[in-house]
Amino acid sequence: MRCAVVVFPGSNCDRDAFHVLKNVFGLDCHYVFHGDTFPPNEFDLIVLPGGFSFGDYLRAGAIARFSPVMESVREAANRGKFVLGICNGFQILTESKLLPGALLRNKNLKFVCKDVHIKVVNNATPFTCLLERGQVLRMPIAHGEGRYFVSKDELKEDQIVFQYCDERGNVTEDSNPNGSFLNIAGMTNERGNVLGLMPHPERCCEEILGNTDGRKIFESLITYFVRRQEHEAN
């Protein structure tokens, strides 16, 4: 699986995503600068990493969506390539309308960095195919604008992939760290090949960091990719 990590000038989780894809999963990984473009078949997975793409003083991701690289990301997504937007990447995906909804300031207006629990709502996506429905993962969040909002007519239930929950998997108000609508932590597009999520799976893929729950998302992707290739070969 050939992977790209997009680098916006203010990305700051780009090197983290790169490290995990390359050194933890041994994938063929490349950086793509925001001003560059690439052919739609160039990469199988494109990661839009966390950070503050263009400073994001006004609205996260609002400028990034005009970057030349986003045209390539859109075309790749249309071809069914995997696109994973983490944190700022999720914000850029909604700004680019690759995903529905918007990410607003956290309810308490403060940046929040801590571990949360999220529950798998939909395991019929490439990003969650090795997970059980209802399975609870622990994952770090770190954002100031993570309150997901979407109007009811835009929302299709099966696009919700992850919801914030408590340790036992109960979706409660107390376990919602930012005031997201329906505790939504991760959303996919209708086709299922684009995922945006506020928690950081790349921050919990190594034993030394005390949590490896994030691995399951990347492992799902790799497994799905291999199966699809096998399927296509047959």
């Binding site: 989780c13 983290d16 995990v20 403060k110 770190a142 960091l209």
Partner: peptide, 14 residues
């Protein structure tokens, strides 16, 4: 206080 600071970016915080 420290939950308002990103203390994990860089994925080195053990």
């Amino acid at each position: 206080v420290f939950e308002q600071y990103d203390h994990m970016v860089g994925i080195d915080t053990v």
